[in-house]
């Protein structure tokens, strides 16, 4: 039995620079994946809401397809099998990033769809009445408001995305989680490193979601 007093904090202190490198990769992956998947998700949402049948179908199939699969499976696909199809090297980071963007876009799509639906029809109509084209109406009238309304939910989903990036551990990409496991196994200090990793994730995600809540309150004033 390991008591708190037996904890070897020294192991963590020595490993900090290495863990920090991992954390930077986690944050970079989260940031890029969030931007990419919000963009793609918005496109998909517009497709689902478009009047063209084909677009509706593509959007619906995309969303239902990816929401039926475990993220882990998607990560494996992009890491092992996609390079075989494209016949070239795909950087582990890039393959993970592409996987995350395609997968998370399905979730962001649904958020953006309800965001767009929350904007009253009259606004779009007045846009058209002013002589704006569809693209202009969306870009200048509907989407900015939809983003604003959905900002807290988009941010919450991004926090979930940050947690999900820890799954790249299965393909050995050196994110925070992978780095923690590497050190844990190298120094046989599982307890210290895993508790530390949990603590770091908890503090970051807890305060991030707290900030989102505060933001939400401010917006509702």
């Amino acid at each position: 039995m390991i008591m708190l007093g037996d904890f070897d904090f020294g192991v963590i202190v020595t490993a900090l620079p290495y863990l920090w490198d991992g954390m930077q990769l986690s944050l970079l992956l989260t940031g890029l994946a969030a931007v990419g998947s919000i963009f793609l998700g918005t496109l998909l949402a517009l497709m689902r809401l478009s009047s063209i049948r084909l677009f509706q179908w593509i959007g619906a199939i995309w969303v239902n397809f990816f929401r039926s699969l475990p993220l882990l499976l998607v990560i494996f696909w992009f890491y092992f099998l996609v390079p075989l199809i494209v016949q070239g090297q795909v950087d582990a980071f890039e393959s993970a990033l592409i996987g995350f963007v395609l997968f998370e876009a399905a979730y962001f799509c649904e958020i953006m769809r309800s965001g767009i639906q929350s904007i009253s029809r009259g606004q779009a109509w007045s846009g058209y009445a002013l002589g704006l084209k569809y693209s202009q109406t969306m870009r200048y009238v509907v989407l900015p408001q939809a983003f604003r309304n959905m900002l807290p939910i988009l941010l919450t989903q991004t926090i979930i995305l940050f947690q999900d990036t820890s799954l790249v551990f299965v393909v050995g990409l050196a994110d925070f989680m992978t780095s923690a496991v590497t050190v844990a196994q190298r120094d046989s200090r599982l307890v210290e490193l895993y508790v530390f990793a949990a603590l770091v994730y908890f503090v970051m995600c807890y305060f991030a979601s707290l900030s989102v809540k505060i933001l939400q309150k401010k917006m509702h004033k």
Binding site: F80, P83, G172
Partner: peptide, 17 residues
């Protein structure tokens, strides 16, 4: 440098990564 495990090494050589 890309870390590999016993399970990933062969697919990664085979897919050219």
């Amino acid at each position: 440098l890309v870390p590999v495990t016993p399970q990933t090494r062969i697919p990664l050589i085979a897919n050219g990564n």
